[in-house]
Design a protein around this nucleic acid. Sequence first.
DNA 1: TATCATTTGTTCGTATGTATC
DNA 2: CGATACATACGAACAAATGAT
Lengths: 266, 266
Amino acid sequence: MSEGLIRRPTAIYMQVADQLATAIKRPDSEYAPGSKLPSETELMARYGISRPTARAAVDELVNMGLIEKHHGRGSFVRDQTPPSGELPRSVTWSAKEKRYLVPELSQVEPPVVTRTNIVGELAAALERDEDDAEDAFHADHLLTTGSARVAHRVIIPIGVAAEVPALAAAPDAPIGEIYAHLAEIGPLWWDEWVSARTPLPDERSSLGLADASPLLITHRVTHGPDDRPLLYEELHAPAARVRLTYQIRPERKTTKPRTSRSSRAV
Amino acid sequence: MSEGLIRRPTAIYMQVADQLATAIKRPDSEYAPGSKLPSETELMARYGISRPTARAAVDELVNMGLIEKHHGRGSFVRDQTPPSGELPRSVTWSAKEKRYLVPELSQVEPPVVTRTNIVGELAAALERDEDDAEDAFHADHLLTTGSARVAHRVIIPIGVAAEVPALAAAPDAPIGEIYAHLAEIGPLWWDEWVSARTPLPDERSSLGLADASPLLITHRVTHGPDDRPLLYEELHAPAARVRLTYQIRPERKTTKPRTSRSSRAV
DNA sequence: TATCATTTGTTCGTATGTATC
DNA sequence: CGATACATACGAACAAATGAT
């Protein structure tokens, strides 16, 4: 009947949570990914605890990221398999085709283009003056790697679009084409930074995320000759499904390290 | 007396949490970082709610990462300076010093060295045969960027350590020195992949994470001549505090894209 | 379509333990 | 030592979502 002895010193709900967590993490566990955990009522009976204590134990498992709770259905073991899909973030130069190559993802929905001005973080990244805000095209893409959906936003400052008319004509073109057009200005290089956070509810639905697993976010600024920032991109991908891959080659020391993103003087 | 009306529909504890969260996030807030939140008893009186409801509201704020609770002291507003710290992931080559340069982080604790064998994911990354497992040094470092703690694990296969005696002598050396020694074998390049997940409880404590904010995880394999994998690194950093930065230069197309990490035939 | 049992969500009341000052 | 504040635990009730009847 009893599921293992419960020692006094540490909190009961913690002990129950630990036992369940161990059971879940055991390889050939009775709690396989996707399977249902005992209901709160059943935990009460099984461990001889009250409802609040059972709830606290289950909540602890949620905090550990081991299970998900669903109102009216029950608690279910999350799939802990590490991300399999790869999202290559490197850029190659094809000497034969004389253009930059990036992996293209297939489109899930037609891109949406809007036009707003450049402020805040974005202004800093593009080294634009926020007080004299320049306009920009926003192209929002919803793509898929095959195993996961990713959201991709491409932001083209109006000034750059004016310089490269092909961009103004099709700001929602695939990113490979955008790079090809930008390359007309001169050789390109990219600055990228990666962060992660818990997704917001609307992001969960648009990216088809089941749970509260984190969102990987990459920001990329395309630089042209004279290190001029030309383009901004933001990519949101579910960390549970994909990992970002980079190939790192040593840079020549001479290239002065461009440090912090624009610390504008006041 | 009453701190704002409370509508019925949504959960009371949620409404209280929202009000407090808004108050905390307001710029010139009465709840500055470090200041003390009203105690549970005070919240009960102020909003006319019960103890469990007050607790639930405060717990919600903890989950949002806005406050920290301390037994017997109270709840305190966290410093919310978001992703400020940068963790540069690029490598530079100093022609003058004839060595690779990487940003060094300062040590929080002396590194711990253990010795285990190479299996699973690790074996795949290092292209080792799992059935004839090679041993490896594990060096675990606890470092700080100034604004955040990061955990760094360096894994040196015994074969490589035998080839480069300096590594066997000090497997817990800073990563810059490790690279310097490896460079004796030949020119190096790196393969890196990035994922993120919710931290486990013990990771939360060792990295000093407030709560469920995600963990950024980078895996890096150092390759020597003939693309031979020499070294494996894993870095864990709190996504709320740091972002990883990359500088991307186009690669020559000729470099054949090494795709999936070792699909061993059976 | 409507109803019912199951399961989690929310809320109250109450009591006692333990850390901090 | 005592006051304050958070931690743990019990009991009880009703609400809301879900799935099956």
